[in-house]
Amino acid sequence: MIKRSHIRQFLAVVDAGSFTRAAQQIRVTQPALSTGIADLERLVGAPLFIRNRRQIRLTEAGGRFLPIARDLERNFRAADGFGRAEESDKPVLKLGTIRSVPGAFFQNVTALLARDFGLEISENSDSELRAAVHGGRLHMAIVPLRSGEHEPHVTPLYEEPIVMFVAADHPLAGQGEVAPEDLAPETMIARRACEFLDATSRFFTRHRVRPRFALRSDSDDRCLRMVAAGVGITTAPASLAIDGIVPLKVSGYDFRRELGLLIDPAWRTQPDMEQRIARALPAIQRAAADWQEARVDG
């Protein structure tokens, strides 16, 4: 008999494109995942994946099974939400977010959503959140939008620059603009949650700047506090500024990000969801506009 675990494992491999990443995402060992997929292939009577060292691809049978699996997972989620909705009178909303969403803004968003939904919140990377929404494991996620990404299932929130932060008493803090080469003697702090980490590295490499790193951390708060302490400098979205640090204009460093809500279209069309979402989204967009005016470009 096909179990829900089989469906979750199958969709995880499809969305992650790798047995290793899929195992990490659903928190099982890779041997257990391989065993589960082999069991599913035995039950459906056909190989579902073509495996080689470079990539994992669906077979023809796997392609036919994929929409069935997605429908099954959505129905499983609907059944889960049905039981919880009876207990709380609110349907469950599985909300994902990248780690670099400012805490105060995320508080505003979740407070508005909590009026109509019971929330289950998770943090992950942009790619993993998108895969989870696409695979039906999340209903909604706050992610950085890609260029031109304004489809009906996407709700833009706010846009902001990515800036270089230095301590307020740093010798460069009083200068209006500096060249990338001026940062060559500086010690850097790497925010591992930064969406522009690779782009920033390429930017400084082009200018032959190869700084020493004092810290690499998943914690934005720790990184920014180390900047305030004078340990090093870092790049971050403008809205993450804290006391004791100031933005420094670097010539040619002009990255920006736009955050938005990515919504599972199938979940959105479930009974009663559209009405609840229609109440929440305008309020969230107003909160985002107020946030941008007060904190980002103000």
Score class of each variant (00 low, 15 high):
V28G: 06
R99K: 10
Q107V: 00
G176D: 04
A32W: 06
E159Q: 05
I56N: 10
S100G: 03
L224A: 10
E86R: 11
A38E: 05
L58I: 01
A46L: 13
D243L: 07
R70V: 03
Q275L: 03
K3A: 12
P47G: 10
Q175I: 04
A104R: 08
D198P: 04
T205V: 03
R257P: 03
L183F: 09
D221T: 01
Q55G: 10
L145C: 10
R57N: 14
F49L: 11
P237M: 15
P91W: 09
T234K: 14
A287M: 02
A241S: 15
Q275Y: 12
I50N: 05
I162T: 13
L215Y: 15
A214P: 01
I277A: 11
R210C: 04
R206N: 12
I121F: 03
K3S: 08
Y158T: 01
A179Q: 09
T20L: 05
M1F: 12
N124P: 09
K249P: 12
T155Q: 13
R222Y: 02
F203I: 08
S251E: 08
Q9V: 02
G252K: 14
S125G: 11
A167E: 08
L157T: 05
K94I: 14
I37H: 15
V227P: 09
C194A: 06
F10K: 02
S127W: 06
E195C: 00
R51Q: 07
L138A: 01
T187C: 09
V178D: 15
I2S: 04
Q25L: 07
G174C: 14
W267D: 12
R54N: 08
G260I: 03
A16T: 01
A61F: 08
V44L: 13
R42F: 12
S127I: 06
G148E: 09
A167G: 11
S88L: 04
A111Y: 03
F117D: 06
I245K: 09
D182M: 11
A266L: 12
A132Q: 09
D218P: 09
S34A: 15
E86P: 08
Q25S: 07
S5H: 10
A173T: 02
C223N: 10
H207P: 00
L145S: 10
V178F: 14
L197R: 01
F204G: 07
R64W: 07
G118P: 01
R130C: 04
D272L: 02
I233C: 15
R191V: 02
L112D: 13
I277Y: 10
G174E: 10
A168W: 07
A229H: 11
F105R: 02
H153S: 07
L240Q: 13
D290E: 10
S239M: 12
A114T: 12
I98M: 11
R70L: 01
P152D: 14
D80N: 07
S100C: 03
L138S: 04
L240F: 09
T97D: 04
I233D: 14
E120M: 05
I37L: 15
A199N: 07
R212S: 07
P247I: 06
R268K: 05
E60L: 14
V231Y: 15
D116P: 01
P91E: 10
A12C: 00
G83L: 13
L281M: 00
Q275H: 07
A190L: 06
M164A: 04
G298F: 00
F49Q: 05
A228S: 15
F213Q: 09
F165R: 10
S239P: 08
V101T: 13
